[in-house]
Design a protein around this nucleic acid. Structure first.
Lengths: 137, 137
DNA sequence: GTTATTGGTCTCAAAAAGAGACCAGCACTA
DNA sequence: TAGTGCTGGTCTCTTTTTGAGACCAATAAC
């Protein structure tokens, strides 16, 4: 346990070094990147596209609770940040395929770590929520 | 590169297995957990508290662009999900210390992976954004 | 008595997200 | 030939979330 904490501390040294010298978090360049991938739908779409390219309508069916408006908008943001490639095929009617770029694929590993952690701990989180809500009642 | 893709695919098998059989993403338990930590401020606060416990006012100064309202609210959510412990000390005026629980600490590793990735790739993202915006002008 | 500090809450304005109607262009069908 | 459906969107309206900032009680220091 102690060694784990030390390890954690040494990692934080690196993390803090990545920030501005003033050591406040507001102009940390990492935040800018994280913000682009921590929208409500972005990680989900990246995970989906990591499997294979999908067309607009396919993504819509895969994630039924996203509105068409947010799907368009999130895909545009992912495209702007260089994670997703958009290609229009001249079929009738035209179909549009979305796929991950190399940059997008490079995000999969760390993102998947987080997903794995979430899967491993979602029981603990549910329990914590239930316990907390019980005290508030 | 090919082996990387294969590795990615095998990981996705696991990911999909974690979902409901219908293979649509809307009732994936992982989403519920991810949602709790992908707010605008949550990952930042977890990273900060990973270093050491902080008091309310200290966090406010550390993250100058968070409003007091959102700091209160985000800390409450993190507490509810079992990531953060809140302790009131009977000083005058009372001071409140926030620290990570074991569950919160267990999140650090995967979260830090993502931060590291973000740091490594923020130049590429900036470049992609600039290139994209140039075509839209 | 005045001022500052603590960790909040409350209210109101602004921004973001969700719901759903609408659209053009073509193919297929009746 | 008129109707229907599919494509990937956009537009508008409503609801939710966030941000900005005033306010608060209790106490200590000046």
């Amino acid at each position: 346990m102690d060694s784990k904490i030390l390890n954690l501390k040494s990692k934080l040294e690196i993390y803090k070094a990545a920030m501005a010298d003033g050591a406040n978090f507001s102009d940390c360049p990492v935040r800018d990147v994280i913000r682009g991938i921590n929208g409500k739908w972005s990680p989900l779409l990246v995970m989906a596209l990591a499997e294979k390219p999908y067309r607009f309508g396919e993504l819509r069916r895969l994630v039924p609770d996203i509105s068409q408006r947010m799907l368009t908008q999130t895909l545009l943001e992912l495209q702007r940040d260089g994670y997703v490639h958009r290609e229009v095929f001249p079929t009738k009617p035209p179909s549009v395929e979305y796929s991950l770029t190399d940059l997008g694929r490079s995000m999969f590993d760390p993102l998947y770590q987080l997903v794995q952690w979430a899967e491993l701990n979602h029981d603990a989180v549910s329990a914590a929520r239930a316990a907390f809500d019980a005290t508030q009642a």
